[in-house]
């Protein structure tokens, strides 16, 4: 591993609460090791600010392994930065050059309110799942796990869709701020498995209604979501969702 360092200029969105107007402030990140992750770079900047008794830049993170979906910001207009299939916490500074200027802004969408600086409220995603992103079984009474075989192909596709980390990059990248990739990933994951079949139609209808209700936009096939997704969730899931949705609008009404 190299120990090279670089210097960067950061233009960071600072906003003190949802009602504040917000602004871009400039910071100089000096002697940044190329082995650092992007968030470690922000940690270093924040240590400097704290020592000067200034308010550190607020940003969310937890696992720092690219799996919890807690981190995320727009870096030079790209959700989670320029590398494909990489969360912000897994983006390393070796992908930047000495002297670069980086614009760092929160994920923006009508349904995601800004809490502070880069920290946003994504509880709308939880509400969409509550509308139907589950299989209605209570604990106890499940049949033996091997009672129903599932083809390798279907279970792999289900796993591909289930890999979504709920970070919101898809919404932030979509010109319509649509949550279709998120919703379709969950609908696909469950609809592909025999266990999820009984509720498949209701589920897709209810989740889409909730998505609309929460102020997410419509999907107009821009494909930006797929390009931004750190987990490589495919827009084929959206096609699958559309099929489920057509079935559901033919056969049922949403239960709210």
């Amino acid at each position: 591993m190299s120990t090279q360092t670089i210097n960067l200029t950061l233009k960071v969105w600072r906003q003190n609460g949802p009602d504040d107007k917000g602004r871009l402030d400039t910071y100089h990140a000096k002697n940044i090791s190329k082995d650092m992750s992007f968030l470690e770079m922000l940690d270093v900047v924040n240590e400097g600010l704290s020592k000067k008794n200034q308010d550190p830049i607020a940003f969310d993170s937890d696992c720092r392994e690219g799996i919890c979906g807690m981190c995320g910001a727009m870096v030079n207009g790209h959700a989670h930065g320029p590398e494909s299939e990489t969360t912000l916490c897994q983006l390393h500074m070796r992908h930047f050059k000495d002297g670069d200027t980086l614009y760092i802004e929160p994920f923006r969408a009508r349904a995601f309110k800004i809490i502070k600086d880069l920290v946003i409220d994504r509880s709308a995603f939880d509400q969409i799942i509550q509308a139907g992103g589950f299989i209605s079984v209570n604990t106890g009474g499940a049949p033996d796990a091997n009672a129903t075989p599932v083809s390798l192909e279907k279970s792999s596709l289900a796993m591909d869709a289930a890999a979504c980390i709920g970070c919101g990059a898809c919404v932030a990248s979509c010109p319509n701020a649509s949550a279709m990739l998120f919703v379709s990933a969950k609908v696909s994951h469950l609809a592909l498995l025999p266990q999820g079949q009984p509720e498949a139609t209701r589920r897709s209808l209810n989740m889409i209604c909730e998505m609309d209700h929460l102020g997410f936009g419509n999907c107009s096939n821009e494909r930006e979501c797929e390009a931004a997704c750190p987990k490589g969730i495919s827009i084929q899931n959206i096609a699958r969702l559309n099929r489920e949705f057509i079935k559901s609008s033919l056969f049922s009404t949403p239960s709210v």
Partner: peptide, 12 residues
């Protein structure tokens, strides 16, 4: 058993 019923996509 319960996790499979909940839709956990275990390897097969």
């Amino acid at each position: 058993d319960h996790c499979v019923a909940l839709g956990v996509p275990f390897a097969r």
